[in-house]
Design a protein around this nucleic acid. Sequence first.
DNA 1: CGACGTATTGACTCGGCTCAAAACCTGTGG
DNA 2: CCACAGGTTTTGAGCCGAGTCAATACGTCG
Lengths: 244, 244
Amino acid sequence: MTQQGMPHRSAHHADALLRPLAVFDGVDDALIAAFAQAARYRILAKGQMLYLQDDPAESFYVLLRGWVKCFRETFDGKEAITDIVPAGQMLGDDAASRGHYSTSAQAVEETELLVLPLALLSDAMRTDHQLVLNLLEQHLLHQNRQRREIEHLSLQNASQRIGCFLLRLCHDRQDSRVTLHLPYDKTLIAARLGMQPETFSRALATLKKQTGIAMDGPVATITDVDALARYSCSECTASFPCED
Amino acid sequence: MTQQGMPHRSAHHADALLRPLAVFDGVDDALIAAFAQAARYRILAKGQMLYLQDDPAESFYVLLRGWVKCFRETFDGKEAITDIVPAGQMLGDDAASRGHYSTSAQAVEETELLVLPLALLSDAMRTDHQLVLNLLEQHLLHQNRQRREIEHLSLQNASQRIGCFLLRLCHDRQDSRVTLHLPYDKTLIAARLGMQPETFSRALATLKKQTGIAMDGPVATITDVDALARYSCSECTASFPCED
DNA sequence: CGACGTATTGACTCGGCTCAAAACCTGTGG
DNA sequence: CCACAGGTTTTGAGCCGAGTCAATACGTCG
């Protein structure tokens, strides 16, 4: 048994990692086991590409640790980030019907993931009803998040978008005072929110003045969550606890 | 037989209208018939609301004629348009799992539609595999379109967004010269593209100068489709025939 | 014709982008 | 421990695209 440090050797481990995923909720054990059997383990270094937009797709992925940036780029090198996927999420599964990836994907930092054959997913989708229902459910959630992005880009200014981003990091906001660690670079957050790093910096400064938040490097302290919500969500179509 | 002018009386007619929809592709005849039986016919006047964001949902709809604007609005009345649905499309079906509508919907002009019970859809989703696969497929398409919106909002300027909008109206562009009629008001197009009417007007003027297009009221004549594509798509992540 | 909704044009403001420089931070090797 | 190199973040100055407010043209329908 190659137990410690090498989960890739063990279908048993992969099984335990796959089972909690939302897409596998209520799905037949045998099917999950089949996926686990076929799973390969892989580590990406920071900045390493996982796949390229329009590449023919043969695998989808489950992130175990780290972050992956999904983006598309124009001919002259500008990029639009469509998603930054956290650990515990599935990635690239939307290629199942299209046959090629709709975005490029790159590791933001050192990242562990499971590699799974897309063909297996396509096959399972043909027969497993629950699986398809779960996929549909996930895509609806994703769609709502995208809808929110569009609203924010056209209605909110830079400071409000940052505020909204911070609010979404406060899941546990029964407390009015929250301290949290930014999940990744400010530069990357800026890109994610569709603005330049300089703009991010300045907008964050005004956000500090307007609402009572304080920053110490990558650590934000929000003294009054409600004030932040009032400021950020005033131009938002969703009322505060910006539901996912 | 109430044949002409009153398709709402006839389940036979509804059947013929539902069958060509992408979601019903390959679906059991009996199931389609069940939907047709339950279908009600309705006409909306221009400007009439179909449903409101966050309303409990009991129906979904199939547009037969006209256009419906889907949007959400902020507390102070600004609105973000998320979609403008053409005839032949389904509407409000995403409420099946959530139980309430995620946007408001309003008729842009006089609009005919079929009203169908959402409960029937939910039931069918529980048992009919093909239907769920079709729904998933449709949502993936929709998601790609939304992704494109996000890119455009963050990368393209006003003129390029308009150009891209026009290009998407030229499905049949083996010909380099195309004449087309704008599907609805310029004001509405402007809102759809996330800009003010004034900006739209000015941006369209520069687009005329830059590429060889001409406008006569709501009729656009594109003399050189390729030139328009070169101008509009230079900041786009998709190469020209901006696939749907 | 007059009235209303739609479209354009003008003058001005302002948010965010660009280019450039400085301030920080973090890790590395002497 | 310090010096240095690399990346990240901040600050500054100037510019440009799009929003705003206001006025004017254009259509169409009564």
